[in-house]
């Protein structure tokens, strides 16, 4: 039996670096509408975004976000559909999608939990919080990611749970967050950032 040598343990391991082109495929040109069916609602949403800008390519991120909402991640088929509507090559969109942290180009679970692990949060226990989340939620159900500064250091350590900012979150609260998501309940309703008053004592007269 051969021993598996980990060639890539040094430095970053990037999906894609080792991928060759599949020479049996055709080149990926601008998808032809005649052979690329696009769901009507997705088309309508992308076209509405395109109408917002003088140059329709500006709708790249909103279009990819729409694809991600619909399919859970930016699937190759979804990217092709968006490319077809926008008259771009799918490569254009995949270049954009892989640039941005929130656009997923690999399959991910339904619930997204970003735990901020940048300086201010990590000074207040974010790394431990992230570990607790990873222990508590399984990958099939939860897309748990350490994230760069989410801009909510006032509630450190915090997390963005399906887009809702909550904090400070203690490790003890992690099971409750997971349970609430599973049961479709509101997550830590008392700790929503939008409900929090400003810290500055001079603001209240």
């Amino acid at each position: 039996m051969s021993i598996e040598v980990r060639r890539y343990e040094h430095g970053s391991r990037v999906p894609g670096w080792d991928e060759a082109a599949d020479l049996s495929k055709d080149p990926a040109q601008v998808p032809d509408p005649a052979t690329t069916p696009v769901p009507e609602d997705l088309r309508a949403e992308i076209e509405a975004h395109m109408a917002n800008y003088p140059d329709h390519r500006s709708a790249a991120i909103p279009a990819l976000a729409a694809v991600q909402r619909r399919y859970g991640w930016c699937t190759p088929e979804g990217i092709e559909q968006a490319a077809c509507v926008m008259r771009l090559t799918p490569a254009y969109l995949v270049a954009v999608a892989t640039f941005y942290d929130m656009l997923e180009t690999r399959p991910v679970a339904r619930h997204t939990i970003y735990v901020c692990t940048n300086i201010s949060c990590s000074l207040r226990g974010a790394d431990e919080l992230l570990a607790a989340f990873k222990d508590a939620g399984d990958e099939q159900e939860f897309n748990i990611r350490g994230f760069e500064c989410l801009g909510a250091c006032d509630i450190a350590p915090m997390a963005s749970v399906n887009g809702v900012y909550v904090g400070p979150v203690t490790r003890d609260e992690v099971p409750e967050v997971i349970a609430a998501l599973r049961q479709g309940r509101e997550v830590l309703p008392d700790k929503h950032l939008v409900k929090r008053p400003v810290a500055d004592p001079n603001a209240q007269t």
């Binding site: 970053s12 990037v14 894609g16 670096w17 991928e19 060759a20 082109a21 599949d22 020479l23 495929k25 055709d26 080149p27 990926a28 040109q29 601008v30 190759p76 990217i79 771009l88 090559t89 799918p90 490569a91 254009y92 995949v94 270049a95 892989t98 640039f99």
Partner: peptide, 26 residues
């Protein structure tokens, strides 16, 4: 202007690639 060849990822992870393993044929 075939726009098949692009950078994927970002920073030190950036690499030259095509969409979803399609060959760069133009």
């Amino acid at each position: 202007e075939d726009y098949q060849l692009v950078f994927e990822e970002r920073g030190a992870h950036t690499y030259v690639s095509t969409f979803n393993g399609h060959p760069y044929v133009a």
